[in-house]
Simulated scan of single mutants.
Amino acid sequence: MSYLKIPIDLHSAVTGRLKRCSYEESIAQQIMLLIVSHYGEVTGKESYGSEIWELEFSQLVKISDWENKVQESLAQAISRYEQRLDDVDVSVVLSEINVDDKKNVHVRRKAQITVKGKIRTTDQPFYFSTLVYISPLSQ
């Protein structure tokens, strides 16, 4: 079985030349969609997404609380919407980065998100990791 690679190119869809991806890449794409979606964005699936966008501009949340809330929300979303994985372990680490644009130095944050698990049908290990840059937070 082959899976569609996202984003889907409309021209490719019309001409019947849609790009395909592997089973593992399909799982990774689904996890990335969960990360970048905010709650309520997907009609009929109000819990689809993650806590990241609920906390993005919050100035009263400690870094450890932010990490824990995002980690818990992603673990719940993955267990609910990505049922091809078992034994899912989610790790979220928030860190600061300095962006120097020659005039000002801006402090931004990045979240290192790692998902480990086991592919249900094959018992093979699964690993996914990404960086998400977060708008400036005052903490």
Rank of each mutant, 00 (worst) to 15 (best):
V92F: 05
V88W: 05
L34Q: 07
E72D: 13
S47L: 05
L137M: 09
D86G: 08
Q83Y: 09
S47P: 00
T130P: 03
E96F: 00
D9F: 04
Y39M: 04
V90P: 03
L74T: 03
P136I: 04
V70M: 01
P125W: 05
K102F: 15
V88T: 07
S37A: 14
E24S: 11
K45S: 11
D89A: 11
S138V: 07
R109D: 11
P7A: 10
V36T: 12
N98P: 05
F57H: 07
E24Q: 13
V70D: 00
I134M: 11
S12I: 03
P136Q: 10
I63Y: 00
R84I: 02
R84W: 06
T43Y: 10
T43V: 10
P136M: 07
N68T: 03
L34F: 09
L60D: 14
N98F: 11
I8L: 15
R20I: 15
T114R: 09
E41Y: 07
R80T: 12
K45F: 10
L131P: 02
N68R: 08
E67W: 01
L137E: 00
L137S: 03
I31W: 06
V42C: 09
K19P: 04
S12H: 11
E56N: 02
Q139W: 12
D86T: 12
K116F: 08
G16M: 02
L85E: 06
I6S: 10
D123R: 14
A13M: 12
G16D: 02
F126T: 04
I27A: 02
Q29N: 09
L18D: 06
K19Y: 06
S22F: 03
L55E: 00
E46N: 10
S58A: 12
I52L: 13
N104M: 12
V90N: 08
V107C: 08
Y48Q: 01
I97K: 15
G49W: 01
A13I: 06
I97Q: 15
I97E: 15
T114L: 01
V99G: 02
E82P: 00
Y81P: 00
I63A: 06
T15S: 15
L94I: 08
H106R: 15
V99R: 13
A75R: 14
K69P: 01
I78P: 03
V105P: 02
V99E: 14
S50D: 06
K19N: 13
L34V: 06
L55V: 01
C21K: 10
K19W: 03
S95I: 09
S2T: 08
A75Q: 15
K69W: 01
K103A: 13
E24A: 12
I134T: 07
F57A: 11
V132F: 11
F57C: 05
Q112D: 11
L34G: 08
I113Y: 12
E46Q: 09
R17V: 12
V42A: 08
V36L: 13
I52F: 06
H11N: 14
W66P: 00
S12E: 14
S58F: 04
N104W: 13
E67C: 01
P125A: 05
W66E: 01
L34R: 10
R20Y: 14
N104V: 13
S58G: 08
Y39W: 10
G40A: 09
E24N: 10
I31P: 00
V90C: 09
I52P: 03
E41C: 08
L33N: 11
E67G: 01
S129V: 05
I8V: 15
